[in-house]
Amino acid sequence: MTYKLILNGKTLKGETTTEAVDAATAEKVFKQYANDNGVDGEWTYDDATKTFTVTE
């Protein structure tokens, strides 16, 4: 399945996607991606759209 991440960081905004077997796996990938890019904030997940959002 394809999962999407929306980044609403103070210095980085954008979107990315990943292929993962489940939401938990996608979340690990996205949290590492956000961490690597210096984005740390509040996370939400919408199962209907398979979209994670992180907002600083």
Rank of each mutant, 00 (worst) to 15 (best):
M1H: 15
M1R: 10
M1K: 12
M1T: 14
T2W: 13
Y3P: 01
K4S: 06
I6H: 05
I6G: 02
I6A: 03
L7F: 10
N8D: 11
N8F: 13
G9L: 13
G9H: 08
G9I: 07
K10Q: 11
K10A: 11
K10W: 10
K10C: 12
K10T: 10
K10L: 14
K10M: 12
T11C: 14
T11K: 13
T11G: 10
L12Q: 12
K13I: 10
K13Y: 11
G14A: 13
G14V: 15
G14D: 08
G14P: 04
E15V: 15
E15L: 10
E15W: 15
E15T: 10
T16G: 05
T17V: 10
T17K: 08
T17N: 06
T18E: 03
T18I: 15
T18C: 13
E19V: 15
E19I: 15
E19Q: 14
E19H: 12
A20N: 03
A20E: 05
V21M: 13
V21T: 12
D22G: 04
D22A: 04
A23D: 06
A23M: 13
A23C: 12
A23N: 06
A24Q: 12
T25L: 07
T25N: 08
T25P: 02
T25H: 13
A26G: 02
A26S: 02
A26N: 00
E27C: 11
E27T: 04
E27I: 08
K28P: 03
K28G: 08
K28H: 09
K28T: 10
K28M: 11
V29P: 01
V29E: 07
F30M: 03
F30H: 01
F30C: 02
F30V: 02
K31T: 05
K31Y: 06
Q32A: 14
Q32E: 10
Y33P: 00
A34Y: 03
A34L: 09
N35Y: 15
N35Q: 15
D36C: 08
N37A: 15
N37D: 03
V39C: 05
D40P: 04
D40F: 15
D40M: 14
D40I: 14
D40Y: 15
G41C: 02
G41A: 02
E42G: 05
E42R: 09
W43Q: 00
W43T: 01
T44I: 08
Y45D: 00
D46H: 07
D46P: 00
D47H: 08
D47N: 09
D47E: 15
A48W: 07
T49Q: 06
T49G: 05
K50Y: 10
T51S: 05
T51H: 03
F52N: 00
F52T: 00
T53P: 00
T53H: 06
T53N: 05
T53Q: 06
T53L: 06
V54A: 03
V54D: 00
V54M: 05
V54L: 09
T55Y: 07
E56M: 07
E56Y: 11
